[in-house]
Amino acid sequence: MRHIISLLMDNEAGALSRVAGLFSARAFNIESLTVAPTEDPDVSRMTVVTNGSDAIVEQIMKQLNKLIDVIKVVDLNDTRHIERELMLIKVSTKKAARDEVRCLVDIFRGRIIDVTENTYTVEMTGTCDKLDAFIEALDHDLILEVVRSGVSGISRGDKPIQS
């Protein structure tokens, strides 16, 4: 099953490679990984999307917890949560009607953030599924470049995940 794991860790050089190294050394799967500092510059927040049986995800959680730099680990699947991913996508408008692409962008609530004679660059946020669906909906030949941020996740409700 797909799990979204959220972690807080010391914002130290090398902390990222500890997490990435753990996943590769123990043959855990990473679908995406995002990391950036939080409101506290000493603490980074990371979101890892992984896939695995319950036993494997339990091991992932335990192994992450064991890393000295890691302050807190939460499996967002255990709580109600929101996930979002940002995608920037460059679409050729040479062959297709520009209107058609614009219409699709509207339906998916994206924004066109750059325009040239032959291309649109579209910004879109949403769940992974939504971004996948947009890509599906586009004629494959029109896609020139896709940049996805990887998933960020946060729990719903009052309670923050805190160090």
Partner: peptide, 11 residues
């Protein structure tokens, strides 16, 4: 003492 040792190989 190490939670990750528990249920790693054997339930």
């Amino acid at each position: 003492v190490d939670p990750s040792s528990i249920a790693k190989n054997v339930p």
